[in-house]
């Protein structure tokens, strides 16, 4: 007998409309509103043991406190599966359903499912981490959506393999999973080419993203008065690699003294980067980080000063999240030191 806890807002919880959107978190024994439908669909396979509820305004204004209170209520009860909503196209409700589904799944380790209309703002915020069944834009879609949510939830509870978004009816989570195809990649390549050459419709297996554009920082106004920092993704570190900079898939970065590199060069510094042949750089690190030339140019007054530290990480197969975090952390460091511009070398 599957024990389900169900989340609804004030409206579906039959407390009231907009006038009751400020009600704080509460728990009710048994099903309320759409929870009755859950019980009817499940028959003797399971039932809604409790309904947790919060007003949409209260949740959006006190998200952290509200979701924590709800989480405590859920955690205090025996539960096999958490279902939120569905929220259809209701924006605040969608965000609440997304947040609760995510927290219950991640923090309580329970299988959790919600449902939303694809344009609900909760979809973009939460689709990556959770299963959101695609619904219509109004509650008219309830009888269609709820069975799908329950079906997916039961299978998550049973740790059964979950198929693709189209087959299962959930909104794509931006995740790609390795699967075994019936044909080898080489055979699929020939099939695909013959289709493309015949001019019949074909489907690529890899879609390239269009990454975000950052508006350019203003140019260095006066180079002669500028402090320039050297940064590299080339994994150049002291021989003993004191900060354990990874040779690939870096999560760390470090800073070392430019003066040490200038004084000792290849005797003391080596690249740990695994993505390229490091022989030439390890012969002469200036080939990666142009310290010799930068010191000359500083002396000649082309720019005012070379920032005394160089910053280093390894740029090979780094996850975007790590790359962004490392970039932000380095940027903070450089901004605090009033660095005017950065020369970044990569391999």
């Amino acid at each position: 007998m599957l024990r389900i806890i169900h989340y609804v807002n004030q409206f579906f919880g039959q407390i009231g409309g907009e006038d009751k959107a400020g009600v704080p978190p509460m728990v009710i024994d048994g099903p309320v509103g759409p929870g009755l439908l859950i019980d009817r669909i499940l028959k003797d396979r399971g039932r809604v043991v409790a309904t947790v509820l919060c007003g949409d305004n209260y949740f959006s204004e006190e998200m952290e406190a509200a979701s924590q209170a709800l989480l405590d209520m859920i955690g205090a009860r025996p539960c096999d599966l958490f279902i939120a909503g569905p929220a259809f196209n209701a924006g605040r409700y969608g965000i609440a359903c997304g947040e609760m589904t995510r927290r219950v799944q991640d923090e309580l380790g329970l299988p959790a499912v919600t449902g939303m209309f694809p344009e609900n703002p909760g979809v973009d915020l939460y689709r990556k981490g959770i299963y959101i069944i695609e619904t219509g834009n109004t509650a008219v879609g309830m009888p269609k959506a709820m069975p799908k949510m329950i079906d997916l939830g039961i299978r998550l509870f049973g740790r059964e393999p979950i198929g693709g978004p189209e087959a299962e009816g959930y909104l794509p989570r931006g995740i790609k999973q390795n699967v075994l195809a019936s044909k080898s990649a080489a055979e699929r390549a020939v099939d695909l080419l013959l289709k493309k050459m015949k001019g019949v419709p074909f489907r690529t297996e890899i879609l390239l993203p269009d990454l975000d554009v950052v508006s350019p920082a203003p140019a260095v106004a006066d180079l002669k008065g500028a402090t320039i920092a050297l940064v590299t993704e080339g994994g150049l570190v002291p021989r003993e690699n004191p900060d354990n900079i990874e040779s690939a898939r870096a999560s760390r970065w470090a800073k070392y003294r430019v003066a040490d590199l200038a004084a000792h060069g290849a005797e003391e510094f080596q690249s740990v980067h695994r993505g390229f042949d490091t022989v030439f750089v390890n012969e002469d690190p200036n080939r990666l980080l142009p310290v010799d030339v930068m010191e000359d140019l500083e002396r000649e007054g082309v720019f005012k000063s070379l920032f005394p530290d160089f910053l280093v990480t390894t740029g090979v197969a780094t996850t975007m999240d790590n790359a962004r975090r490392i970039g932000r952390e380095m940027a903070r460091e450089l901004a605090l030191a009033n660095v005017s511009g950065v020369l970044l070398t990569s391999t």
């Binding site: 140019a219 940064v231 740029g315 962004r324 970039g327 903070r332 511009g341 020369l343 970044l344």
Partner: peptide
């Protein structure tokens, strides 16, 4: 990717790369 974060933070950054 680092250069984009530098630029986002308002520090101009030039990427020197072979590719």
């Amino acid at each position: 990717m680092l250069e984009k974060e530098f630029e986002r933070a308002g520090i101009p950054a030039v990427l020197v790369t072979a590719l």
